[in-house]
Design a protein around this nucleic acid. Sequence first.
DNA 1: TATGAATGAGGGTTCATTCAT
DNA 2: TATGAATGAACCCTCATTCAT
Lengths: 203, 203, 203, 203
Amino acid sequence: MPTKKKPQVTATPERRRELLDTAAEVFAEQGYNATTVRKIADEAGMLAGSLYYHFDSKESMLEEILRTFLDELWSGYDAVLDAGLGPRETLEALVTESFREIDRHRAAVAIYQKESRQLAAQQRFAFLAASQRNFEKAWLSTLERGVVAEVFRADLDIRLTYRFVRDTVWVAASWYRPGGQHSPEEIARQYLSMVLDGISARE
Amino acid sequence: MPTKKKPQVTATPERRRELLDTAAEVFAEQGYNATTVRKIADEAGMLAGSLYYHFDSKESMLEEILRTFLDELWSGYDAVLDAGLGPRETLEALVTESFREIDRHRAAVAIYQKESRQLAAQQRFAFLAASQRNFEKAWLSTLERGVVAEVFRADLDIRLTYRFVRDTVWVAASWYRPGGQHSPEEIARQYLSMVLDGISARE
Amino acid sequence: MPTKKKPQVTATPERRRELLDTAAEVFAEQGYNATTVRKIADEAGMLAGSLYYHFDSKESMLEEILRTFLDELWSGYDAVLDAGLGPRETLEALVTESFREIDRHRAAVAIYQKESRQLAAQQRFAFLAASQRNFEKAWLSTLERGVVAEVFRADLDIRLTYRFVRDTVWVAASWYRPGGQHSPEEIARQYLSMVLDGISARE
Amino acid sequence: MPTKKKPQVTATPERRRELLDTAAEVFAEQGYNATTVRKIADEAGMLAGSLYYHFDSKESMLEEILRTFLDELWSGYDAVLDAGLGPRETLEALVTESFREIDRHRAAVAIYQKESRQLAAQQRFAFLAASQRNFEKAWLSTLERGVVAEVFRADLDIRLTYRFVRDTVWVAASWYRPGGQHSPEEIARQYLSMVLDGISARE
DNA sequence: TATGAATGAGGGTTCATTCAT
DNA sequence: TATGAATGAACCCTCATTCAT
């Protein structure tokens, strides 16, 4: 691996963040492939070529966006998983943390949702697959603990349940808009209510 | 349908179907934008240019795939909605029908999930937006009916519930593989069980 | 040069003529390059591939159209040039003959006007250049004879005059429509009047 | 004329002009349809894609070439038409101006001659049709004025005369080469002599 | 830091042509 | 004779990327 010279973190790392935020917004809105480097530059008020002073490539921007997001996400998740909570409380905390993450990194989450599967196949984005595996491990074990503790129903296919909960939470990024009428915690509460107790009225 | 003279659906509509199935598979796997016409042709065992004997453009292939899917979907939905069922039975039937559709048109559903939002902005794909509106109408009214009839909980935000159910069902297309261990009806049953009664054990 | 098998003059040579007439019309209207073989076939009520039963190539159609036209043109010109007329009568006869040719072969003349220069560079269309040389020879000698005989003005550049007369006549093909209010002979008469005596009133 | 690489310290609009001049030359020589964008780029010493930094499309290059030409042409014509000259002097001035324009914009004129008719049908090139109408108006009214003033012969069909003069002048672009032995003014004089007084010797 | 201009590798599409039926 | 389907080369255009200034 030859050392590259380009992305000197000289000057302002804030400018870098700004540009990445802009890029993330456009990626989320138009899709990664459909987004041209020029569109990002336009949005940032510069010319396409100028972006290459800050970043190696379009792909490296994408990578940094996703890496930053996943780092933060896991720092939140790890705190929850290490807190020694019971299975139901763990589930509630994970879901709430997820909605907070959607609130903070809406664009990144949307990108992740949409592109993750194809990206994960590339060497460069192997960290996506790794994260996904950890994710699955955390959820499955939580669900299993809950079944054992008779906190969750035992008659459900556990993998199906995992997918159900996982998807249910993350797709919200596709319609969620920060600053709307519901706070992330409020949405989390409602989602949890549905996921845990169902939508049908109890007799 | 204002398509003029070219590939009249006279002789072999089967070849057309074959090619569209191939295209749908590739679109679903790689994303519409990332899919090259050459890739589709390769998969179909012909040269890129040859596709244009059958179709006007890459976009028209996409359109036909989505139109065909939505036509079938709505023929199923309409049957359910016109059956005069109660709200809970309607919801169950709609969900079941959706999983059947995922089973039959997995690729089309996956494409729809991924590209629909951006596509709908184009004049050509306005029918996507129209379908989405009808979809929303059908679900919201069913949920409202259910709340009135005290079949569904009254304490949930109805739009949030709508999104919850809608997403929950359709994202399944992203991991569902036909011919797996669960039939669509089986999956529908488990999903319904979770959605209606929740995943937590009843005391 | 291997003998080709295709253009059997079997069956009807009339069909051949019909097809060539159709092709000439489209070539004239849209330009040779801009004309697709399919457009010709459409106009003839068949499929593009079917034309290749009758002709070797699009280019061979063009060649036959132009050859046929030039053959007829020269048969008319040669008659005039061999008639032993005086220079002014020769000029009048050539111009009249030209307008008759425009009347009969409007499409071919239009094609000739438009494409001749570029075509002539190709080996295959060398006959166009040859014809052009003969054409020039005939006109220049007629004009020179006329100057010597003091029938034409001596103070004009003879090459310029040649181009003037030549162009003046043939461009008419671009606006002439057979069956209009003026017969070719009538138009020829008026053109000759202008060319010979000018448009200004005599004092 | 070997194309050398200029020491382009050129500001942007000059580069644009250079490229358009190159394009015009190729269009004129090979015809618009037969000209590939790559050929233009070759001639300009760059790659095909690079042209798109300067222009939107091949068609937009054509448009700009023709627009520029017509703008200049009409600025010359308008000066003549507004000068309050008599009909004969107007005709002489228009013809002279036309030959000057051929001298300055030979390529553009040749393109105009060849492609104008088909182009005019397109929305984008409607300005060609408009120009043609103004052209016709100017000439017809000049000829009519001349007939009334008994400066031009009254026994000629005025539309035919219009076409005669118009074509006669502009076709010259197809053989005219700037820097030849005749200046545009000289050619104009000879043409006018023929058009006004005819080529036959006066008794 | 950013610009202007160019590169070069495709990508979608067109079209003359072929050929088995 | 004509059709239906396919070929393959070429075309216009896009876009990530580079680099001298």
